[in-house]
Design a protein around this nucleic acid. Structure first.
Length: 393
DNA sequence: TCTGGGGTCCTAGGACCC
DNA sequence: TCTGGGGTCCTAGGACCC
């Protein structure tokens, strides 16, 4: 088996540098607006020299790199470029899986007659993307997807690294625990406490012992990865999933009117996405983050599917009020649907609260209308009132 | 430093049933 | 009166990733 893991280098920042040639060679930082509560989404390698990293608070990025060029996230543009690049991937193999906007794994088994050796194929792929889009890729090649992923990280940016069959264990040992995908800060600390500091050390521990210390799943996961065995991180086959929208306020909010309005707004966004994918769900979940950053979630499962944004909002608001001390401030509120399933047949046999059935049809009709006339902007009147973070309100 | 937004998967405990 | 074992569904939270 031969797998490629393909990863676009500093993707958002690189797209900006392509679209604006004057930004090339400069420290570009894509993310939240400086001065706000937000983080870095991506940054160019020129910015990394200053110690800027993605997920870093934007305020910290400004401190480290005052001369940085701070740009907003243009997700639509990145998605468009991503789609075009993924088309190139699909011309190399029919068997590929998109992992995220800037990553994919390709099954290149048996493509030698078409593209030559794996290294030759990877070189061709890198050149195609560079010539067409001006963007660089890092490619990892290995016998399984997990090791290929690690190999793509190994020589970033513009990397190409192959872990030869049989060389997985030495390669893992070179990386060390910290660089293994799936081991985060908490697990690393726990392993350090246990004195299990290297992949080689963990290979000496029996599976049962690892599982007693770290749990059944994590134990098995660790047992496999230190041996270069794919734990199955990219297996597809998802039965249900979740949909959510959340927002962090510019300043902490206690005013129930603002909270209510925000929740209604978010409920509509979630429901639009549910309609778009023709899904259904019986479980609503609320997320609240307090000024001290403590985060709580509350959920409720109903005997029937949730039909409309209005219903979703009411359930969410009830949950919120029931669990939240009146008047105390919060920094984030979010709402979502869980256990979303594809709705294969029209809803039937379920008993719904009457009032929401009508709303459901209205919402679906609006969505259809918007699909036909994308310029149309239809919104509930209550959503048209100014919100706390809209300018000039 | 002061921490976004969107996800996935796992764990542990309680309720309930057979 | 003190007590099984297994299964399913649900809730809350944690870890991790992009």
């Amino acid at each position: 088996m031969t797998y490629f893991h393909v990863d676009l280098d500093a993707f958002f920042a690189s797209v900006e540098q392509q679209d604006h040639p004057d930004l090339r060679g400069k420290p570009v930082i894509v993310g939240a607006k400086p001065g706000t509560r937000g983080v870095v989404s991506a940054c160019s390698y020129e910015a990394r020299v200053y110690g800027v990293r993605s997920a870093m608070p934007i305020a910290e990025a400004v401190r480290r790199c005052p001369e940085g060029i701070f740009l907003p996230v243009r997700m639509k543009r990145y998605r468009e470029v991503s789609r075009q690049i993924m088309e190139i991937f699909s011309s190399f193999t029919p068997s590929w899986i998109p992992i995220s906007i800037d990553e994919a794994t390709l099954d290149m088994t048996g493509t030698d007659t078409l593209f030559g050796s794996p290294e030759a194929a990877a070189t061709t792929l890198k050149k195609r993307v560079k010539d067409t889009f001006g963007l660089t890729l890092s490619i990892g090649i290995a016998e399984n997807r997990y090791v290929a992923k690690l190999a793509s990280e190994y020589r970033k940016p513009d990397g190409l690294y192959r872990v030869l069959p049989g060389e997985e264990v030495p390669f893992i040992d070179t990386l060390g625990l910290k660089k293994l995908w799936g081991i985060g800060v908490k697990t690393l600390n726990r392993l350090t406490e246990l004195g299990w500091n290297t992949p080689a050390k963990i290979r000496d521990i029996p599976l049962r012992v690892i599982q007693v210390r770290l749990g059944k799943a994590t134990g098995e996961f660790l047992y496999r990865i230190v041996r270069g065995i794919d734990p199955g991180i990219y297996t597809t086959e998802v039965k249900s999933h979740s949909l959510s929208q959340e927002t962090t306020f510019p300043i902490d909010v206690g005013d129930p009117k603002i909270l209510k309005q925000t929740l209604l707004d978010l409920s509509h966004q979630v429901m639009v996405r549910l309609h778009q994918e023709s899904g259904r769900s019986r479980t609503v979940a609320i997320k609240v983050r307090y000024p001290n950053f403590k985060t709580r979630t509350f959920r409720r499962t109903l005997p029937h599917s949730i039909l409309s944004a209005e219903e979703l909002f009411h359930l969410g608001w009830e949950l919120f009020q029931h669990n939240h001390p009146l008047g105390s401030e919060i920094r984030l509120i979010g709402i979502g649907l869980e256990q979303v399933e594809t709705q294969e047949e029209p809803l039937q046999g379920e008993l719904f609260p009457r009032e929401y059935e009508k709303q459901r049809s209205v919402e679906k009709a609006i969505l259809e209308l918007q699909k036909k006339h994308p310029s149309l902007c239809l919104k509930k009147a209550s959503l048209l009132f100014p919100r706390i973070n809209s300018p000039g309100s």
